[in-house]
Design a protein around this nucleic acid. Structure first.
Lengths: 341, 341
DNA sequence: TGTTGTACGTGCAGCGTTGTACACATCAGA
DNA sequence: TCTGATGTGTACAACGCTGCACGTACAACA
């Protein structure tokens, strides 16, 4: 009877045997612990490469040490902007020894997802566009190093934040629209409790409207993330008393719906209606949309968040809050005064 | 000196103490193992609920048992179609005790991502739109239960597959275009080695063209996933010798680029050029696009894949191959003969 | 030469589970 | 009364790693 060739995992012990050292020594090298000579390190790393050893995530988790895996939580998968953030995180992670798992809050709640990630002994968490309150996040941050992307709260001390300057986004949009000759400028915003990102955009919009002497035209319409309701709200922008000359939308997809409604109503863009989106997703550049939008560099947001998270894991206590500056990309949807070149 | 209130995790031992049984008994209940009386089960489950115990993922992984976590691998995050698949997986998972982690092949290679997921002792893997060969996937399937979505190979025995009937997609597209009076119908396909999904669509397109007596117009142009090259290829469809009357695109985004190029070139859609996309993503329904597309029900694909994976984890050996039927959703981009409904 | 450091390695006790081996009742049949 | 058979719960050795408590060797100092 042949021995069952049990396909054994390569462990730290195998490496130790191959390198002719104790298994604890290998562990030390892996953890970059104190008391390792260059020659030891060399021998061990050589054996690791030779045997193709990879540490067991589970064993690390159970023995209380670092797992070198971080979690990333996204609110949904449909906004291509999040892909940019992810790309930024990936690329920043390449320079480190950390890996990443993603979770997407789709049907499940953010809380449940985060809970299950906690159970996996991850080293840290990046939460994108969280709908939780700062308090809840602070509680979470007590359990695990945390960085929030898209959660404006400069006074939070328990975790780091990385944000676009959303106030500036609102301001730039209005400024651009005013330059193009629009006056009755409305805003299609999001109906959400803790969307502090949205709050900032609204505030920027309102401030810029006031600064331009257009206080009487200020109109913020908050709509839930629901196709039907977005269309209805967009329709209202085109007719009746509150008819607008231009609309600033909190995200590109809403702006595209406005373009759609305008097309159906045979309202000409940009002459009758100017439209500005947010995030400068890849659909903006299509000719049938030609959507002016604000670019908040998701890639950079992701990179910075990763940097901050790793710093936190390695021991930083003091909170940091990073801000990137948005850039307005002008396209046909606001080209009322045709841009000379 | 106050005792440091070490926030200890609730373990199986705590539950055992509370229920006044041995910790092995608790483990048995958890695993639904043989030799558990109703009264024991009751006591234990009561204590579990009372203490809010959740099993440690890491400990399960290390001791070689099930972790009740499955991995899902996506090729990218930009295609909203994948969100539908994910939704299907989530909803199917709700009825089970399994959880899910996602990985997205962005910059990292599929191989590296899968490797790291293997290191996490997951119970199973769903791979969406893999670019690996059937051989490589079979090797992988020997290590972990596997279901591939979007990988047509009915003769594979090592793992299950779930697919749209992509041949039918190609056929339906051509059939519809022919009905609308288009004859010179080209196809914008993907330049990839192992895109068997694409192969099927091409085959369906070619077969339908032949069946319609349009063999001489068959033209499959394979383009990599690169914005610039897609635009160039789209441009060629509009002019010169190979000028088309209609284009069938392998995915919606390519079709939207075709619409964009057509808009720039002032070619009228659908009169001068008919366009068909694939996946029926949410952008198709926007009026500025009004893109005819094939719906392959990502939600259903995800649900079926989950069902098959769980079955496999629980012991099934024989491979199963599930096929869903696509549905053509006609819109303005092919409405040459206006549809008298 | 004896003493004190200091740098480097090793030994080992967990971590929270799984799953097998085993002990102990209880009960039916001989 | 003895002998299984069966049903139920316990004991315990893994699993692969971390990180602390120790040795040991060798150099620097008194």
């Amino acid at each position: 009877m042949a021995k069952p060739p049990k396909p054994k995992r390569i462990t730290i012990h195998d490496v130790a045997k191959d390198a002719e050292v104790s298994f604890s020594a290998v562990s030390k090298v892996l953890r970059n612990a104190y008391g390792v000579s260059d020659s030891l390190r060399e021998k061990v790393t050589a054996s690791i490469k030779k045997l193709g050893y990879t540490p067991s995530f589970s064993a690390r988790g159970i023995s209380g040490g670092r797992t070198f895996v971080i979690g990333v939580v996204f609110p949904d998968m449909r906004n291509p902007f999040f892909a940019d953030i992810l790309a930024g995180i990936s690329s920043a992670l390449e320079r480190t020894t950390y890996q990443m798992v993603q979770g997407i809050v789709q049907h499940s709640t953010e809380g449940a997802l985060v809970e299950s990630m906690l159970g996996m002994h991850l080293d840290g968490l990046i939460i994108v566009g969280s709908v939780s309150t700062a308090d809840k996040l602070s509680v979470l941050a007590a359990k695990i190093p945390l960085v929030a992307i898209g959660h404006h709260l400069a006074d939070v001390t328990a975790f780091d934040t990385v944000n676009n300057d959303d106030f500036e986004s609102g301001r730039l949009s209005v400024q651009h629209l005013v330059e193009q000759g629009y006056r009755k400028i409305g805003m299609l915003s999001l109906d959400t409790r803790n969307g502090s990102v949205i709050d900032q955009r609204e505030a920027g919009y309102i401030a810029a409207m006031k600064a331009a002497g257009l206080t009487r035209y200020v109109d913020v319409v908050r709509v839930p993330q629901n196709l039907r309701q977005i269309q209805v709200a967009a329709g209202h922008m085109l007719e009746g008393n509150g008819k607008k000359e231009a609309v600033f939308c909190w995200t590109d997809y809403v702006a595209l719906e406005v373009l759609s409604v305008a097309a159906r109503a045979r309202a000409s863009v940009p002459d009758e209606l100017g439209v500005v989106g947010h995030d400068n997703t890849l659909y903006c550049d299509l000719d049938q949309n030609a959507l002016t939008s604000l670019d908040q560099s998701g890639e950079q947001l992701g990179q910075q968040a990763t940097r901050l998270l790793v710093e936190r894991i390695e021991g930083r206590q003091r909170a940091e809050h990073f801000l990137v500056h948005p850039r307005l990309v002008a396209r046909g949807s606001t080209a009322r005064i045709s841009l000379i070149r």
